[in-house]
Write a protein that binds this DNA or RNA. Structure first.
Lengths: 107, 107
DNA sequence: TTATTATATCGTAATATTGCAATATAATAA
DNA sequence: TTATTATATTGCAATATTACGATATAATAA
């Protein structure tokens, strides 16, 4: 149906799935990489860095913000975006846990 | 349009995005967690562990296989699934790189 | 051979995502 | 005040995803 049966899964399973969904698009990966490539937070010009129209970029930024992957603070006319280290850490910890559990496996 | 403009992004950006897409559904997170929770590879009974019909589970397993998140080997009538440590490592390395780049940031 | 069991594929309906033109909003500049 | 500039929102078309009943396939059991 296109509807995920979220109610049948745990809170953690739904949270991790939606976190991964937020970074499951090349434009959003590109935004993350661009934020990493510059010295500090970026005010403006993310739109010019991507091969997409302004409303589309705005939409992708909104999704990254909703997932707490990036933080945005208003700087006059522009908005200053940067990565949210806490959320990156959440993902990393999740995979650390997986790797730890995998150590005793046969495969 | 619902079509990602993949041709405008790098190979790596598209690859990482599709890797994250493969784990962006709670059922697929649940499959990963179930594979981790048992001692070894699992032959059969993944269907019984999930609140979804057999064709739906089969479809999710296929997506995880296509993304190389899991490996499946035929064991008589059943199929034996386990996680692919190499792909888990790819994701972990990606976030290690991000964390490293983040160390010199202001936010 | 005919069950039985496990998994895959097909077809399709419901819903979600992507992308963008048009427009709105919000802050500052002239 | 009226620009200008930066970002957000709306509305919609094209496409993708999710879920599952029906059916197919493939291996073994009786």
């Amino acid at each position: 149906m296109g509807v995920s049966k979220t109610e049948f899964f745990t809170e953690e399973q739904n949270q991790m799935a939606s976190l991964f969904k937020s970074i499951s698009h090349p434009a959003r990966i590109a935004i993350i990489q661009y934020l990493l490539s510059v010295d500090s937070c970026i005010c403006g010009d993310i739109v010019n860095e991507l091969p997409l129209a302004q409303p589309t970029v705005s939409q992708h930024l909104k999704e990254l913000k909703n997932a707490n992957i990036i933080k945005g603070t208003i700087e006059g006319t522009a908005i200053c975006y940067c990565l949210n280290q806490d959320t990156i850490a959440v993902i990393q910890d999740y995979f650390k846990g997986i790797t730890k559990q995998l150590q005793n496996k046969c495969c």
